[in-house]
């Protein structure tokens, strides 16, 4: 039952980041799973690899937490699809997670940059 590793050059998503990306994508309006995957990939300039299986499990998880809700509908090209949209709770979470992520990246940046400086001084 172990899942296999993905051997791809693209960066696998960090734990927990997928949720944030989904929420961010849905701010623009309701969207189905395939659309979410495409949007993330495109907006990250194809850096992020979205494992489709994980995406659907993540969507289900967010739905269970009531951060998003879902409804079957019809897509632009007349296909049946399940559309997801943000709930008010999801919006709050988006704000919170975004600031959390900003703080995290800032801290990471500080540490990584300071390391470089010191190396430079020594050299």
């Amino acid at each position: 039952m172990a899942t296999q590793e993905n051997n791809d050059d693209r960066i696998a998503l960090l734990q927990g980041t997928l949720d944030l990306l989904i929420l961010k994508t849905l701010v623009l309006g309701p969207c189905h799973g395939q659309g979410v995957a495409r949007l993330i990939q495109r907006q990250s300039e194809d850096v992020f690899l979205v494992d489709h299986g994980s995406l659907y499990v993540a969507l289900q998880r967010l739905e269970d937490k009531e951060w998003i809700r879902a409804k079957w509908g019809v897509s632009d090209n007349n296909r049946k699809a399940r559309f997801y949209s943000l709930t008010p709770k999801g919006r709050e979470q988006l704000v919170e997670k975004t600031s959390e992520w900003r703080r995290l990246t800032r801290a990471m940046g500080l540490i990584l940059d300071s390391g470089n400086e010191r190396q430079g001084e020594e050299a």
């Binding site: 799973g33 395939q34 489709h52």
Partner: peptide
Amino acid sequence: EIKAHLELE
């Protein structure tokens, strides 16, 4: 839903 995804993709 997965089936729908495959078709959309």
